[in-house]
Amino acid sequence: MPPADAPLTRDRILAAAEDVIRRFGPAKATVVDVARALGVSHTAVYKHVASKAELRDLVVGRWVEATMEPLREIVARPGPAPERLRQFVDALIAVKRRRATNDSELFTAYRSLAADAKSIVAAHIDELIHLLATIVDAGVQDGSFRKVDPVAAGRAVLVATSRFHHPAHASEWADPSLDEAYDDVWQLLMEGLGAARS
């Protein structure tokens, strides 16, 4: 946490907003509450954030951005498409479950805030589909996958695996049979994509 006399920046405001949400819940994610936590006037915060709605959207956007970084790295690295596709979904599952376990208060609040941040969530889903499609397309090009529409296939992979990473299913993630179900779903996806058995 930066010192109290550090310059007021959007990042500092968002870090404070996350802390307020973590401690008091999403209802306290207001400009006034965040200003109070920072020890500044709400006018000072309004120089960086236009409204409570924008503040909440920025918090959701910050959460999403932290989720996306490792996924983009997987897409950018070389390697066989079937392996990278599995690494991508494994990483998506791992980051969501880790955040649900390690920061459960913010994870629960994020689910509530995301319901109102529809454009940010839609952009997040679009990027996930785009990244998955990039890997599928690489597999189509090198013959690892049969000829499919990469975007449609990317969307199908995301939807088919949603039980394992979508926050709405978080209460199911402790089920010991879930990993076996994931492997079964994955085998069907690979058969659908025409991936050669290893």
Score class of each variant (00 low, 15 high):
residue 1 M to N: 07
residue 8 L to R: 03
residue 9 T to P: 04
residue 16 A to L: 04
residue 17 A to M: 09
residue 26 P to G: 03
residue 27 A to C: 01
residue 28 K to W: 02
residue 29 A to M: 04
residue 32 V to F: 07
residue 33 D to L: 02
residue 33 D to F: 03
residue 37 A to D: 06
residue 38 L to S: 00
residue 39 G to S: 08
residue 41 S to L: 01
residue 42 H to F: 05
residue 43 T to E: 13
residue 44 A to D: 05
residue 44 A to I: 06
residue 59 V to A: 14
residue 60 V to N: 10
residue 62 R to M: 08
residue 62 R to K: 12
residue 65 E to S: 14
residue 69 E to S: 10
residue 70 P to L: 02
residue 77 R to V: 02
residue 78 P to T: 01
residue 89 V to Y: 00
residue 91 A to Q: 15
residue 93 I to V: 15
residue 93 I to L: 09
residue 95 V to I: 15
residue 95 V to T: 15
residue 96 K to M: 15
residue 98 R to H: 11
residue 98 R to M: 07
residue 114 A to C: 09
residue 118 K to E: 14
residue 119 S to H: 11
residue 121 V to P: 03
residue 122 A to G: 07
residue 126 D to P: 03
residue 127 E to C: 06
residue 127 E to H: 10
residue 133 A to H: 05
residue 136 V to M: 08
residue 141 Q to N: 13
residue 142 D to Q: 06
residue 143 G to K: 07
residue 143 G to A: 07
residue 149 D to Q: 05
residue 153 A to T: 02
residue 155 R to H: 11
residue 157 V to K: 00
residue 157 V to F: 04
residue 158 L to T: 03
residue 161 T to W: 00
residue 169 H to Q: 05
residue 170 A to H: 11
residue 173 W to R: 04
residue 176 P to Y: 10
residue 177 S to L: 14
residue 177 S to V: 13
residue 182 Y to C: 00
residue 183 D to C: 05
residue 186 W to A: 06
residue 187 Q to T: 14
residue 187 Q to W: 09
residue 191 E to S: 06
residue 193 L to F: 02
residue 197 R to V: 08
